[in-house]
């Protein structure tokens, strides 16, 4: 198998670190070599954050570079646009249809781009979801990132059982059921 390159992008505080732990756990569970690269520290305070996940027979470089990603998972749509050029030609974008204004937009120094999802759809295979609404339905908005993962799961070579087992082993015990529900909500779409 050639190395699979996944990127998770979003806004610091959206839970990219939890989702990267789940993706890392999956690769180990399936017996792959895997490397993940995360952002800790200052950028986690509402900045643009990116996690790289690479798995396959043997992985050297811990980052994904421009033009190499198979799947881009975006928890916020401006971040999807920011990192879209990391995708391969036939790459897939899973995007949470949520807008979080960066401070540059709040202060009026910049404008939030319009029609992001439509524009990205012209170039890539884009699957969008209002994960926040789904998570609200389930009863915990914090699980929106696992809803997004559920949708992304369709584009990775793991079984549904693999995902559920790893989620169970990764999230805090009290939140296992709600997170499984969140995953299913994204997976069944």
């Amino acid at each position: 198998m050639t190395t699979k390159n996944i990127m998770i992008v979003g806004v610091g505080g959206q839970g990219t670190l939890l989702t990267s732990r789940i993706l890392g756990g999956l690769a180990v569970h399936a017996g792959y070599d895997v490397k993940l690269s995360e952002v800790h520290g200052m950028a986690q305070r509402g900045g643009s954050v990116v996690t790289y996940v690479r798995y396959g027979e043997k992985v050297s470089e811990p980052i994904v570079e421009e033009g190499q990603a198979d799947v881009l998972i975006a928890f916020e749509k401006l971040e999807a646009k920011r990192y879209a050029h990391f995708l391969k030609k036939d790459g897939v974008i899973i995007v949470n249809d949520q807008r979080i204004d960066p401070i540059t937009v709040v202060t009026g120094a910049d404008k939030y781009p319009e029609n992001i999802i439509e524009e990205l759809s012209a170039k890539y295979k884009v699957y969008s979801i209002d994960a926040m609404a789904k998570a609200k339905e389930i009863g915990n908005t914090k699980t929106f990132n696992v809803v997004v993962l559920g949708m992304a799961a369709r584009h990775m070579n793991y079984t549904e059982e693999d995902w559920l087992t790893v989620i169970e082993n990764t999230v805090p015990p009290k939140t296992i059921e709600i997170n499984k529900k969140a995953f299913e909500a994204g997976y069944r779409i």
Binding site: V11, R45, G46, S48, L78, T104, A109, D110
Partner: peptide
């Protein structure tokens, strides 16, 4: 795209 620097 607009920058997204960290904020409080």
């Amino acid at each position: 795209v607009p920058n997204r620097p960290p904020i409080l």
